[in-house]
Design a protein around this nucleic acid. Sequence first.
DNA 1: GACCGGATTATCT
DNA 2: GATAATCCGGTCT
Length: 209
Amino acid sequence: MDTFFNNENPLQIRLKTKEFYQQSTLELAQNLLGCLLIKETSEGVASGYIVETEAYMGPEDKAAHSFQNRRTKRTEVMFGEAGIAYTYKMHTHCLVNVVSGEKEKPQAILIRAVEPFTGIPLMKTRRQTTELRNLTNGPGKLTKALGITMDDYGSSFLSPPLMIAEGYIPESISVGKRIGIENSGEAKDYPLRFWVKGNAFVSRHQREI
DNA sequence: GACCGGATTATCT
DNA sequence: GATAATCCGGTCT
């Protein structure tokens, strides 16, 4: 058991170990649901339960940055070991993925939404809103709320400042198409989006498949 | 629904 | 060096 301090409140957590990240990308995308995503900064600690993920399957997945093994400075960490953070910028926003798959298999899981847990006042300040539901219900929103930036590129989730810990086991998981990849041919219909059924912090409502 | 900001990259010239 | 495209969010209609 590790202890991290969020101002006055000690946060007791059990970090996920290296072995957790070595399961298949499809399993990991579902097993990340309910886990706690934590970020420590000089401003304090903020954390939330992961409630929505998307799997990006690498060379064969036209929607993935690593499609056809495209290997650049940006995609490089995806070719490394599982359990590392792949952050990238899209327009004005930073998005965070969990690298998965074996070495040289550039797969990753996008964290699309979390449910706020600790550090909620800090998240409200960062997001400039007091509406709880609007703090972390999208991939760009949660990085801003938790303070995840391009500085976290290549950082391991096994140790501070960016961590994933045990949370809860979701009662039921829903499956659907991924979001925002309309120009990715047949890949746009792959059932690679997973969310905690009925959770209010999921980014968009969508039919299950 | 549409528009646009604006970082980053790939693909041109 | 220019341009188009992008795993998005805020704002408008």
